[in-house]
Design a binder for these strands. Structure first.
Length: 332
DNA sequence: AAGATCCACAACCGCGGAAAC
DNA sequence: AGTTTCCGCGGTTGTGGATCT
């Protein structure tokens, strides 16, 4: 009955990931795309649980991830979204495409919660003030707000899906702060295939290897950090690739091309980094780009792109609204 | 300088819904 | 239709580095 058994728990490695493991995992995903995590340990030979592989990929190895140094704008957005949605980190993360839910959750737990507490205790007056603390006092159940938010989002999505084509150029509204790449999106249509991302992973590996050779790992933890830093740069590669004029490549092409040029990665890609990237995607689009399974291409063939785009960009509309309200002095 | 404590973050765990058989 | 597993999510823990005493 049912599916074949999950990965046997014996002999499953735990703890920090090594660069070698990262490379193996990224190579595999580069070739096969994310998804079917159950098969990953078996096919890669990694002694890791499928869950662990997925987590590693989604939180650190996935293209387009920005880590550390949350900007004030991001902070505000997180606080506002947390206020609105509660601890639904995945939902919050979807509005901050370069951030992972885990990252946001950690940041909330370690920084923002204290910050807000402090502000509330100290009579506020901070940069993100009254709106949040006030709404926190509202006895209305959180579920109710969630529900309302969800309903609104669904409504918006539906109406936009049914309305004539809408350009998401509005998203640039959030670009007021050039340094804040994470909160900006652009009008580039999210029709880029996810294979671009996998290609970027190869670039990432290259970068990682470069760093690795320069700085031989000392401990698993530093390994891990180094790896993450290296992979963080992927955003740049990803951006450069995805926003480039190149058409979609097959994953085979990509793996060939990119692994060939593994050691030729140009630092300069980094500079073109997150601006372009962030300009190009709605949260959902990003999620799709980053995480989508290989079938997305097939889906795109089956479904008219306009429909897909609309669906992908629905959230962008919300984002615009959100950013607008986040930028509002009332909240901040 | 050494030990204690705090902090940040990566990773694990358990749960619930969805999907496969 | 019922059972089993997968997948994704949120909460929690463990660990190493930084700071304090």
């Amino acid at each position: 009955m049912g599916r074949p058994p999950c990965c046997d728990k014996e002999g499953v490695k735990k703890g920090p990931w090594t660069p070698e493991e990262d490379i193996i995992l990224v190579s595999y995903i580069q070739e096969h795309g994310p998804g079917n995590w159950r098969a990953v340990p078996a096919k890669t030979g990694l002694s890791r649980c499928s869950k662990s592989c997925r987590l590693r990929w989604t939180n650190y190895l996935r293209p387009g991830i920005k880590r550390g140094n949350f900007t004030e704008q991001e902070e505000k957005m997180i606080i506002h979204l947390q206020d609105l949605l509660g601890n639904r980190w995945a939902a919050i993360a979807s509005y901050l495409p370069q951030r992972t839910d885990n990252d946001i959750k950690n940041y909330w737990n370690t920084h923002l919660r204290k910050k807000l507490k402090k502000m509330q205790a100290g009579g506020e007056g901070g940069s993100f003030g009254e709106g949040f603390s006030a709404s926190r006092q509202i006895p209305r159940g959180q579920w109710e707000r969630r529900l309302q938010t969800d309903i609104q989002m669904a409504k918006r999505a539906l109406s936009e899906a049914l309305s004539p084509e809408k350009k998401p150029s509005c998203l640039s509204a959030s670009n007021s702060n050039p340094s804040d790449s994470s909160s900006s999106f652009s009008s580039t249509k999210p029709t880029t295939t996810q294979s671009v991302c996998y290609a970027s992973s190869a670039d990432n590996i290259a970068r990682m290897l470069k760093g690795w050779m320069k700085n031989p790992p000392k401990s698993s933890r530093t390994n891990s950090s180094m790896t993450q830093n290296s992979f963080n740069n992927l955003a740049g590669a990803d951006t450069a690739c995805s926003s480039g004029a190149k058409g979609p490549l097959s994953s085979a092409e990509l793996s060939e091309n990119n692994f060939e040029s593994l050691f030729d990665f140009d630092q300069s890609l980094e500079s073109s980094n997150s601006d372009q990237f962030s300009q190009s995607l709605s949260p959902e689009a990003t999620v799709l780009q980053d995480e989508s399974k290989p079938d997305i291409n097939i889906a795109a063939e089956i479904m008219p792109f306009s429909l897909l785009e609309k669906w992908l960009l629905d959230e962008a509309g919300c984002q615009e609204k959100l950013v607008g309200c986040c930028g509002d002095a009332k909240f901040f």
